[in-house]
């Protein structure tokens, strides 16, 4: 169990690094799919089979495939990869990299320092997840639907092609819209 966990964790880390550093969007996405699959396996190993299945079906399955389609439709080509490579120069990532490394070091130290009792291996199945979604977390679920609706309205505005310039009804005088 433990060995399997560390192997999947290592794969998740490696592939996630490649998601960030890869200059080709499609390749980066494929790495992302692998990363999500290994995270799903980690969930399975710590006793959350339902979440693992959701991770595979929703993230690795539906959302990533959608991403792939979108990227293919956007026709991201060689010049985008070149642009990405330019953005990956050291002077861009050095500062944030140092800060993130410091944060990682602190978090790692803290986790080692903290006396934590061993994680329980209680298996949480689909029934338990469903019961809590429709029980104590009912409101949160409903509000999440609201969040999706808000995002949908926003996205439907942002994707729209405005062929004409904004309306002018004030005698052609410009200003802020």
């Amino acid at each position: 169990m433990t060995v399997a966990f560390y192997i999947t964790a290592a794969i998740a880390l490696l592939t996630t690094m490649r998601v960030v550093t890869h200059t080709n969007a499609v390749h980066a996405l494929l790495y992302f799919v692998i990363s999500l699959l290994s995270v799903a396996l980690m969930f399975y190993l710590i006793g959350a089979p339902f979440v693992a299945a959701l991770e595979v079906i929703i993230y690795a399955g539906a959302i990533m495939v959608l991403f792939l389609f979108v990227i293919m439709m956007l026709n991201v080509g060689e010049e985008h990869a070149r642009q990405e490579r330019d953005w990956l120069s050291r002077r861009f990532w050095a500062g944030p990299g140092v800060l993130c490394a410091a944060l990682l070091a602190i978090t790692a130290w803290v986790i080692i320092e903290t006396a934590h009792p061993s994680v329980g291996h209680e298996v949480v199945g689909a029934r338990d997840v469903g019961a809590s979604l429709f029980g104590p977390y009912l409101i949160a679920v409903q509000l999440a639907a609201l969040l999706l609706l808000g995002g949908l309205v926003g996205a439907s505005h942002l994707r729209r092609h405005d062929r004409r310039t904004p309306l002018r009804t004030d005698g052609g005088k410009g200003g802020e819209s």
Partner: peptide, 21 residues
Amino acid sequence: ETRPVRHVGENFAVMLFAAIG
């Protein structure tokens, strides 16, 4: 008060969503 733009209804609606949030 600002200059009318296209799809102004969405603008109002998103404002209300922000208020709900």
